[in-house]
């Protein structure tokens, strides 16, 4: 079978898988951003009990493997009374895992906003919430966007693991095709190229564009 024939036969499944991968990526990214902002802010706040919760979340998810977390979500949580659809367990585990990494980016960016900005906001008599939302966070956002670009690629790659709990994503379809045809180079090779195109020509340019837009809004460009 030539490669063109291979594509003719299996492009439908590869496209379906790619769409699932894209969906998993978008949902996991949203979970990661939300988890990162919430736990990053809590870690900076002076609320001891909440701080402990955020620390435990960050250390557990950064200290163990995504695959272990995924299996735990899918196989163990139901035993504890929380049953998750495999699709939901997939993006939730991926999102929470990378959210823990993102939390450190949020925390680091907020801390690297110059002290003078806090002081100027205080001198204008702004409330703590106003200082954070109107003055610090917009500037922290610009600082943390470049590393978030890398993290987004990691999230995309992380979604490949959901195939192991049978979410029919690109990874899953490539494996199915391989099992049916033994055309490993074609099946896995094509999937590799599709992931590469997503990462290099969709996710990365999108994040760069976001960086530029934010930099312009902050008046740095």
């Amino acid at each position: 079978m030539s490669y063109l024939e291979f594509l003719g036969n299996y492009s439908d499944r590869l496209i379906d898988g790619s769409l699932i991968t894209l969906l998993q990526f978008v949902l996991a990214a949203l979970v990661a951003v939300a988890a990162a902002i919430i736990s990053g802010l809590i870690k900076l706040a002076q609320l001891k009990p909440l701080q402990a919760v955020a620390t435990v979340y960050i250390e557990i998810f950064r200290g163990t493997s995504l695959l272990v977390q995924l299996y735990w979500f899918f196989f163990v949580l139901p035993l504890l009374g929380v049953s998750l659809e495999k699709f939901v367990a997939g993006f939730l585990a991926v999102g929470l895992c990378y959210g823990a990494y993102g939390a450190e980016l949020v925390r680091g960016a907020i801390q690297s906003v110059p002290r003078g900005q806090w002081e100027a906001a205080l001198a204008l008599n702004m409330s703590p919430a106003q200082r954070m939302w109107r003055i610090i966070l917009p500037q922290a956002l610009v600082i943390m966007l470049p590393p978030w670009g890398n993290l987004m690629v990691e999230i995309l790659k992380g979604t490949a693991l959901v195939a192991l709990i049978s979410v029919p994503d690109l990874m899953f379809e490539a494996r199915q095709i391989n099992n049916n045809t033994y055309l490993s180079a074609q099946a896995f090779g094509t999937a590799l190229v599709i992931y590469y195109i997503f990462a290099r020509f969709v996710v990365t340019p999108l994040m760069r564009w976001l960086e530029r837009v934010m930099a312009r809004r902050i008046g740095r460009a």
């Binding site: 690629v153 790659k157 992380g158 979604t159 490949a160 693991l161 195939a163 192991l164 990874m171 490539a174 494996r175 391989n178 490993s184 180079a185 896995f188 090779g189 999937a191 590799l192 992931y195 590469y196 990462a199 290099r200």
Partner: peptide, 16 residues
């Protein structure tokens, strides 16, 4: 290599 999933690379190396 950095932009593609390790899991897929593992399968690729093993099966190809």
């Amino acid at each position: 290599v950095r932009s593609t999933p390790l899991l897929l690379q593992v399968f690729f190396v093993y099966y190809v």
